[in-house]
């Protein structure tokens, strides 16, 4: 059992501001179902530019729900300039602390807030954009994100980085890269304050967001499953790793001689058409 503070428990059992705002001024989304947590944050401003109403929806564990609830309480009544100063540590502090392994819940809150503010200011997607190069392929975390949690929270070990942003929490293949980033950040910190980083080649990616998954599920529901079900088959969405969508055929499809054809000509084609041209569909095989 996790050692949650009374405040975490209180916010989990009685979350504040759950729900949706019909016509929000800003919406931010982070996380994904595949990663095990996701947060959608919406706010509405009053005439003075202060956050008059804020609502959230969260998929996740107790501390994810508590962190979301806490965040909404913290930003209510603030201007966006005030709100965007809130760090993940502020969210954790508000809750009287979070278990070290659960710090990523507070980071998720900060990211959703940033995405919502960005959405208000630019009319952008509101989906937390990943900038930089993906280091942890298991959880889709980039070097920029790792650098940021290391810098803002003075992290010194790979384990801490995993606790704060999940990077390195899967196969472990990226641990040497994370160590390099930590070393780089720490040496930078000593030499000079805030060196201007070489302009990162922004790789706009939105692979770990709620919308993509929803879109894929919707495309499967509306444009793929009916065709398969007509022939007594079906499929399950097993996983989404970057642009790779892993599915498993069920029913008649599982034994179908032309499953490979169905895969490329039906499933992949439809997903490319309705979701993204970069989608690659693979079948989960019992190798």
């Amino acid at each position: 059992m996790w050692d949650y503070t009374e405040k975490v428990k209180e916010h989990f059992f009685n979350p504040r501001n759950v729900g949706v705002i019909e016509d929000p001024d800003g919406v931010g989304e982070v996380g994904s179902l595949a990663c095990g947590d996701a947060l959608k944050l919406m706010f509405k401003l009053d005439d003075a530019g202060r956050i008059a109403d804020v609502k959230f929806q969260t998929f996740g564990c107790g501390s994810a729900i508590a962190s979301s609830s806490a965040l909404t309480e913290m930003i209510k009544g603030k201007t966006l300039e005030e709100a965007e100063k809130i760090t993940n540590q502020d969210i954790a502090d508000f809750l009287g602390g979070l278990p070290e392994q659960k710090m990523h819940c507070s980071v998720m809150g900060r990211e959703a807030l940033e995405a919502a503010i960005e959405n208000y200011r630019t009319g952008g997607s509101g989906v937390h954009q990943l900038e930089g190069e993906v280091i942890c392929t298991c959880f889709g975390v980039t070097d920029k994100e790792i650098e940021r949690v290391v810098r803002e929270n003075n992290l010194t070990t790979v384990e801490q980085v995993t606790n704060y942003c999940k990077a390195g929490g899967g196969c472990g293949g990226c641990h040497p890269d994370i160590e390099d980033i930590i070393a780089r950040q720490r040496s930078q910190g000593r030499e000079q304050p805030a060196p201007v980083a070489p302009a990162p080649k922004p790789v706009p990616r939105s692979m770990t967001n709620i919308q993509k998954i929803k879109k894929i599920e919707q495309a499967l529901d509306e444009h793929v499953r009916p065709a398969l079900q007509a022939d007594g088959g079906d499929l399950d969405l097993i996983d989404i790793i970057g642009d790779k969508v892993i599915i498993a055929f069920r029913g008649m499809c599982a034994h179908c001689q032309v499953a490979e054809y169905t895969m490329s000509e039906v499933v992949q084609k439809r997903l490319r058409e309705f979701v993204s041209p970069d989608i690659i569909v693979e079948e989960k095989k019992q190798e």
């Binding site: 729900g19 019909e22 016509d23 959405n119 997607s125 509101g126 939105s206 967001n209 979701v275």
Partner: peptide, 12 residues
Amino acid sequence: TTAAPQDRTPGL
């Protein structure tokens, strides 16, 4: 039981 929000976001 709650109504879903307007989806303001134009795709990915």
